[in-house]
Design a binder for these strands. Structure first.
Lengths: 199, 199
DNA sequence: GTCTATAGAACGATAGAC
DNA sequence: GTCTATCGTTCTATAGAC
C-alpha cells in the first residue's frame, strides 16, 4: 500500500468523496506537478465527474493548499516527536533519521510540500512559510546545543542547518520505493549528518 | 549581471533572436516552471510576438530540451575539469566545491536541469539521462578511490554517492544571490562532504 | 524573419436537472 | 451530492501578409 493512498493518513478529511479527491490530487501533483494536473484528471482519479470537485473544494489551488498545509504540519510533528535523546548527537541522529524517513515514506506528499510552493496563493504561502521556519529552527537548535556542549564543530551555523535539511528534503526528488527502505535510508543519513558536524 | 542572462553562457546559440528567446525561456522556466510558462511569456521577454518563437524553435518542449541538454553538459564539464588533486580527499573537495558553486552561480539553469525532467519527451529525457549517469559516476569513482586509498570510510557506496550529489543539487531549489556567494558555499559544502566520508 | 490574425483544442469553473 | 452540458478564457501552434 502506498503511503499516499493510505486512507489512515487522510482520515481526518471528510466525507469520503473529499478524501478521494484529495488523495487523487496528491498522486497527480506529485507525478506531473500542479500546473500540469487538470481538474478533470483529479476528478477521474476519484471516480467522479469534473464538476463534482467544486462541491468539495472551491478551486484547484485550495486543494493544493490543504495538501501542503497538512504535509508541512505532519513534517513538523515528526521532527518535534523525534527531538529526544541524552546528548545533542543522539537528538540530531534521531531528527535526521525521522525527517529523512518521512520524506521517503511519504515521498508523494513531500514532493508537493517541497516543490509546489510557487503555485500557492500569497496568503497560503505565508501560512506554510511559518511552519517551514519552525522546521528549520528545530534543526538549528540542536546544532547550537551541540556546539555549546562541545560535541559539534560548526563553522557556519545557518549554512550547515540548511545543508542538513537539504539532505533530507532532496529525498523527495529522487526517492521511489525500489530505491531502499525509508528506515535504512534514515539511519544512513543520520550517520552522514552526524559526521558533518562532529567535533 | 545575472549568470542566466550572461550572453557569454549562451554565445553558441545563433542568431541573437534565438538566444534572446532561449535566455527568456530559462528565466521563465526557472521562475514559474515549464508548464506554467506560456509561449507568449517567452516571446515577450525576448521582445517579440508569440509567432516569432516558431521560426527558431519547433515547439516549447524543444526549447526546454536545448536548455536541459546544454545545462547537463555544462554541469558534467565542470565536474570533469574539477577532478584534480593528489589525493582522493583533494579530488572530492574540488568536485563538490565546483559542482555546488555551479548550481549557485547558474541556479536558474540548474533549476531547469534538476526540476523539469518530467516535461521532456521520452526521447529527450533518455538523452539527458545518459549525462546524468556520467555525473553520478564521476562522484562514485572518487569515493571508490578514497576507500581503496584508505582515507575514506563509506558503508553504503551508492547511497553516499547520492547523498553527496543531493547536497549540491538541492542548492538549485533554495539559492538566491542574497544567500551567500557561490564560491564560499562551495567551500562549505566541500568541507561537509569530506567530513561525511572521512575515515 | 517579423508581424497580425486565428484555428483548434483544452482549461478552470459554473448552471441547472435530478 | 452527483451528473451532463457548456461558458468564457487561454493555450500551442499555424496561415499568410509584408
Amino acid at each position: 500500500m502506498s503511503a499516499v493512498t493510505d486512507p489512515l493518513v487522510w482520515e481526518h478529511v471528510q466525507p469520503a468523496a473529499a478524501r478521494r479527491l484529495l488523495t487523487g490530487a496528491v498522486d497527480a501533483f506529485a507525478e506531473r506537478g500542479f500546473q500540469a494536473t487538470t481538474t478533470r484528471d483529479i476528478a477521474s482519479r476519484a471516480g467522479m465527474s469534473p464538476a463534482a470537485l467544486y462541491v468539495h473544494y472551491p478551486s484547484k489551488e485550495r486543494l493544493l493548499f490543504e495538501i501542503s498545509l497538512y504535509g508541512h504540519k505532519a513534517a513538523l510533528d515528526v521532527l518535534r516527536s523525534a527531538d529526544t535523546g541524552p546528548t545533542p548527537a543522539d537528538r540530531l541522529r534521531s531528527l535526521v533519521a525521522a525527517f529523512t524517513a518521512w520524506h521517503a515514506e511519504h515521498h508523494t506528499i513531500a514532493r508537493v510540500v517541497q516543490y509546489e510552493l510557487a503555485a500557492l496563493s500569497p496568503e497560503h504561502l505565508a501560512e506554510v512559510a511559518t511552519i517551514r521556519r519552525a522546521i528549520s529552527t528545530q534543526i538549528e537548535q540542536v546544532l547550537t546545543d551541540g556546539v555549546a556542549h562541545g560535541s559539534f564543530a560548526v563553522a557556519d551555523l545557518p549554512g550547515t542547518t540548511l545543508a542538513v535539511l537539504s539532505l533530507s528534503i532532496d529525498v523527495a526528488r529522487w526517492y521511489t520505493p525500489h530505491r531502499g527502505n525509508p528506515a535504512a535510508l534514515g539511519k544512513l543519513y543520520a550517520d552522514l549528518a552526524h559526521r558533518m558536524v562532529q567535533a
